[in-house]
């Protein structure tokens, strides 16, 4: 048999691959997981949420296209990673943030957060958190506790009366900061769970975050280790830092309020910027909880999630080096 007309392909094994998996699908999964959270933010914050999310999407995608072109590469917008960054950034902003906060945050997120490190997969810090940190330092008053408050006498179109009332209340994180235990009933209330709570766009509802988070866990897009260790560690450290008759309530309040759930399932769980092994990711999650509560309790900021994530991101190479797994059956070579 002659084989001159054969068109054979010679390559290294393996010759099969799991066609269901792609980087794009991982990103799409995160977007699907965020749908309930986005929906809840639309419900609570109405046009403010639509505006904020739309602005971040346009800015992030444009920034990705421009920066990647500047590097002489074809922009891979279809990998959807810029969309994820945009959504996370938007959901971590206050409803009142002016347009330039979102736009500058987006540009910094994509440019400084991702492109300068070499693009998708190469960044050390979570891009959305880099963008938000820049916005927080650059536009501190637009991002401070007051930014979450709707002036009591204001009338804004699109918000119904009940919901507007929520926005006139201080965020739970501000209340926690004040340390007044009278607020506990409100802090651990049903409203926090079903989503009528003031805060950043993505913090409106724990239930929505949980639904999205469980979807990601079921799809195995996010592994259990970071969310579980982050939630437990936040509770434990919050209770430890507030030892006394209300330790348990403090622990619960820290977990179900603020950005802990958003961070545990969608930000700290970003595989690019967390350790590669399960052991490493548990250390990461515990460290995240520790620094978050530390900042919440002892810094001048009411919320510590963002800086805590950036800090832990910086520690990832060290955690990775500390947790190199031993091959099965490994025996230390005699020296």
């Amino acid at each position: 048999m002659s084989n001159t007309q054969l068109d054979l392909y010679v390559t290294s094994s393996p010759h099969l691959s799991n066609s269901k998996l792609s980087t794009r699908w991982i990103m799409l999964d995160v977007i699907i997981g965020l749908v309930p959270v986005i929906g809840m933010s639309f419900y609570v914050f109405r046009w403010y949420a639509v505006w904020q999310i739309g602005l971040c999407l346009i800015s992030c995608l444009s920034a990705e296209a421009v920066f990647e072109s500047m590097r002489g590469r074809r922009p891979h917008l279809e990998d959807c990673s810029a969309i994820v960054t945009a959504l996370i950034l938007a959901l971590s902003l206050p409803w009142s943030a002016p347009w330039y906060v979102s736009v500058v945050g987006s540009i910094v997120a994509i440019g400084l957060g991702k492109t300068v490190f070499g693009g998708l997969g190469c960044n050390i810090f979570n891009p959305a958190m880099v963008g938000r940190a820049f916005a927080m330092l650059g536009f501190s008053s637009q991002m401070a506790a007051g930014a979450y408050l709707l002036p009591a006498d204001a009338t804004i179109g699109g918000l119904d009366k009940g919901l507007a009332e929520i926005l006139t209340q201080a965020t739970p994180m501000t209340l926690l900061k004040s340390g007044n235990t009278d607020y506990f009933t409100q802090l651990i209330s049903q409203t926090a769970l079903i989503g009528q709570q003031n805060g950043s766009l993505g913090e409106a509802s724990i239930i929505a975050l949980l639904i999205g988070g469980i979807y990601l866990l079921v799809r195995k897009t996010v592994t259990w280790d970071v969310p579980v260790s982050a939630l437990i560690s936040t509770f434990v450290f919050a209770a430890l830092f507030n030892m006394g008759p209300h330790a348990f309530q403090f622990g619960m309040a820290h977990v179900i309020n603020g950005a802990i759930f958003l961070a545990a399932f969608f930000i700290a769980s970003d595989p690019v910027t967390n350790p590669i092994t399960t052991k490493g990711r548990i250390i990461f999650g515990v460290g995240f909880g520790f620094f978050t509560v530390l900042l919440r309790c002892f810094s001048s900021y009411p919320e510590g999630v963002m800086f805590s994530i950036l800090l832990m991101n910086a520690l990832v190479p060290m955690i990775n080096r500390m947790t190199i797994p031993k091959p099965v059956g490994f025996v230390k070579p005699a020296k």
Binding site: L16, T23, L120, G121, V272, I276, P325, P327, V328
Partner: peptide, 29 residues
Amino acid sequence: SEVKKSVETNCVRCGRCVGVCPMNLIPTK
């Protein structure tokens, strides 16, 4: 149709290779 010839994209360190390695290695690294 049995072979998937796909384009390589950047590693996002998702750790799936670590999760399946029977020798407990970090293939991506």
